[in-house]
Amino acid sequence: MQRVHEQEAGAGSARAGQRNGKSKISQKSLGRYMGSLGLFLVILVFGIVLSILSPVFLSTTNIVNLLIQSTILAALAIGSTFVIMTGGIDLSVGSVLAVSSAVGLGLIEHHGMPVIVGVLVSLIIGIAFGIFNGFIITRFQVPALIVTLASMGIGRGIILIYTNGANISPVPDSYVYLANGRILGIPVILLLVGLLAVIAHIILSNTVYGRSVYASGGNELAARLAGIRTKRVITMTYVLSGLMAAVAGILLSARLESAGPTAGNGIELTVIAAVVIGGTSLFGGQGNILGTLLGVLLISLVSNAVNLLGVPPAWDQLVKGVVILVAALLDVYRRKYSKAGLSK
């Protein structure tokens, strides 16, 4: 009888542990979405203030332009969210954007290739850079900062050699349609990036791979001991980042109707800031796509405010630098708060 009671007590304590574990997970998930809600409120207040300072802000033309201008940053940030969630970083997204779009468009314009071939080649180049970054980082344990910094230089070198420092243009109408076309009055570029965001959200929230990304970022050793192939998971995040950088390059060259060696210069830090502001931790294990999109929107609002209020362009860089610093400080604060909440 005593043994039966002991077994029942043990089962009861196991069930209690499971309930506590589920409670902690739900608290963590609630915290992520509460953070997104807080960011949404910040954006709302910022928008109200900006609408008072500039009546042009709430015009349909300005709102549509704001959303379209944010699509390139959004595409890059979606890919970088996966990388940063594993505790990594990708500084090569700007150069991958440039080299993939230039080579793809060059094949179309200089070699008479069909548009679909040029687009596919651009995507393949982005994937190749991602495989290279992920392989070197996971196989040789080289810090991601160093590997992706090297990739950034390699990409810039390739595009300078390929283009000889000149822009590639013109762009076929079917290519331009990706940025300027409309379906039922909605810009195609918004539909494409929105669809990619939904797919990324589903991957993170409802797939085994998404849970593996969270686990690898939260504690890579524990994830490996649990049977997760963390090297594959991490490599795949860089592949997704490279792929999204190529998508951003295609969309940017379609918008500008040209591709050149300076495309995406300096956008890497802005991408990281958008992701971190959106709630993704630089230390890994936390983040979501909705938060990333809100982070992109906030940074785009800052740039929009600089333009509407006639602030000198030099201040744009200063403001972005401050935003990046604030994002890092918020990340440290969120991490400490999360640990304190989960330890209770």
Rank of each mutant, 00 (worst) to 15 (best):
residue 45 V to P: 00
residue 132 F to T: 00
residue 97 L to N: 06
residue 24 K to C: 12
residue 30 L to H: 03
residue 52 I to W: 07
residue 20 N to T: 14
residue 78 I to A: 04
residue 101 S to A: 15
residue 102 A to H: 11
residue 115 V to C: 10
residue 111 H to N: 07
residue 134 G to W: 08
residue 68 I to W: 14
residue 18 Q to A: 08
residue 73 L to V: 14
residue 69 Q to M: 09
residue 30 L to P: 02
residue 115 V to M: 10
residue 98 A to N: 12
residue 52 I to D: 05
residue 53 L to Y: 15
residue 75 A to R: 13
residue 87 G to W: 04
residue 12 G to Y: 15
residue 76 L to M: 07
residue 113 M to N: 05
residue 57 F to G: 04
residue 68 I to S: 07
residue 105 L to H: 11
residue 91 L to V: 01
residue 83 V to T: 08
residue 110 H to E: 13
residue 85 M to I: 08
residue 32 R to A: 03
residue 18 Q to G: 04
residue 71 T to M: 12
residue 132 F to N: 01
residue 46 F to Q: 04
residue 78 I to F: 11
residue 37 L to I: 06
residue 75 A to M: 10
residue 115 V to P: 12
residue 100 S to Y: 08
residue 30 L to M: 09
residue 35 G to A: 10
residue 124 I to V: 13
residue 26 S to F: 14
residue 22 K to P: 00
residue 64 V to W: 02
residue 62 N to W: 14
residue 78 I to W: 05
residue 104 G to D: 14
residue 91 L to K: 01
residue 33 Y to T: 00
residue 134 G to D: 15
residue 50 L to P: 06
residue 50 L to E: 15
residue 15 R to L: 02
residue 56 V to C: 04
residue 9 A to M: 07
residue 133 N to Q: 15
residue 70 S to K: 00
residue 34 M to L: 09
residue 107 L to W: 01
residue 17 G to N: 12
residue 17 G to P: 03
residue 92 S to K: 07
residue 126 G to D: 03
residue 133 N to H: 11
residue 108 I to T: 12
residue 54 S to M: 07
residue 74 A to Y: 14
residue 28 K to C: 01
residue 56 V to L: 10
residue 111 H to K: 03
residue 82 F to P: 07
residue 113 M to L: 12
residue 13 S to C: 12
residue 101 S to T: 11
residue 47 G to D: 13
residue 59 S to F: 11
residue 88 G to K: 03
residue 44 L to E: 00
residue 27 Q to Y: 11
residue 12 G to E: 15
residue 65 N to G: 04
residue 95 S to R: 06
residue 31 G to R: 01
residue 101 S to K: 01
residue 99 V to S: 09
residue 70 S to M: 08
residue 19 R to N: 13
residue 110 H to I: 00
residue 27 Q to K: 10
residue 54 S to E: 08
residue 126 G to N: 02
residue 110 H to T: 07
residue 16 A to C: 01
residue 63 I to L: 15
residue 113 M to K: 09
residue 10 G to Q: 00
residue 54 S to P: 05
residue 29 S to R: 03
residue 89 I to L: 12
residue 108 I to W: 15
residue 60 T to G: 14
residue 79 G to W: 07
residue 71 T to N: 12
residue 118 G to W: 11
residue 80 S to Q: 14
residue 105 L to W: 11
residue 99 V to G: 13
residue 29 S to M: 04
residue 98 A to I: 09
residue 22 K to T: 12
residue 126 G to M: 01
residue 37 L to T: 06
residue 118 G to L: 08
residue 115 V to H: 10
residue 131 I to N: 04
residue 57 F to C: 02
residue 17 G to F: 15
residue 90 D to Y: 06
residue 23 S to N: 10
residue 69 Q to I: 04
residue 35 G to D: 12
residue 78 I to N: 02
residue 86 T to C: 15
residue 124 I to E: 07
residue 98 A to S: 15
residue 32 R to V: 00
residue 38 G to A: 03
residue 35 G to N: 09
residue 107 L to D: 10
residue 65 N to F: 09
residue 92 S to L: 05
residue 43 I to Y: 09
residue 42 V to M: 03
